Amino acid sequence: MTQASPPADTPDRRQHHRVREIFAEACEKLAPFFAPENRWGNVTLDHLAYRVVRENYPELSFEEVHVLVLAAHRVYTQSHST
């Protein structure tokens, strides 16, 4: 299912355009932190994912880093659910 594009006269309300540009690349880098086999004490390593994003994309704001990590985690969870 594809999303319909908004009419040309509708302003683009999306934010975090830089996050959209790097999303696929960042998801690959962050996937190991969400994998069940890499948990420590049955806790995901999300805090390390934040660090990796900050190191690789220092131009991102705190909000953008947060949005990126949450979205990558959601994508990983949805693609690896049974």
Rank of each mutant, 00 (worst) to 15 (best):
N56G: 14
F62Y: 13
E37V: 03
A26L: 01
R13D: 14
Y76A: 05
P6L: 11
F62C: 11
A26D: 04
K29Q: 13
K29G: 09
A72D: 01
D46F: 03
E28S: 14
R54T: 15
R20H: 10
A35W: 05
R51H: 13
E64W: 05
V19N: 04
C27S: 07
Y57W: 15
E59K: 10
A4V: 06
F33Q: 05
A72H: 01
S5N: 13
V67N: 10
E21T: 13
S61L: 06
V69Y: 00
D46S: 10
H73I: 02
S79M: 12
V53C: 00
N56W: 05
P7Q: 04
E28N: 12
R74H: 08
R13L: 15
T77H: 06
F34H: 02
A26Q: 04
S61P: 03
R14I: 02
D46G: 11
A71W: 05
H47N: 13
S5P: 12
S5G: 10
H66T: 13
H73M: 13
T82G: 13
R20T: 08
N42T: 03
A31N: 08
A49D: 06
V53A: 00
L70P: 00
T10F: 15
P32H: 05
E63Y: 11
M1Y: 07
H16D: 14
E28T: 14
D9W: 10
I22C: 06
D46Y: 02
V53S: 00
N42A: 08
A8R: 04
P58S: 09
F23E: 08
A49T: 04
R14E: 06
F34G: 01
E37Q: 10
E21H: 11
S81V: 02
H73K: 15
R39N: 06
R51E: 15
W40C: 14
P6F: 09
S81F: 08
V19L: 05
E28H: 11
H17G: 08
P58L: 10
S61Q: 04
N42S: 08
H66L: 12
V69L: 02
D46A: 09
N38Q: 06
P32R: 03
R51Q: 15
A72P: 01
S81I: 04
H80S: 03
P32L: 02
H66S: 15
E63W: 10
P32G: 08
D9C: 06
Q15P: 01
T2W: 10
S61D: 02
N42F: 03
R13T: 12
V19G: 02
C27R: 04
A24K: 12
F62Q: 14
P58Y: 07
V43G: 01
R13C: 10
F34V: 00
S81G: 07
H66Y: 11
G41V: 02
A35C: 09
R74C: 04
S79E: 15
Y50H: 10
V53N: 01
F62I: 11
P11Y: 04
A26M: 05
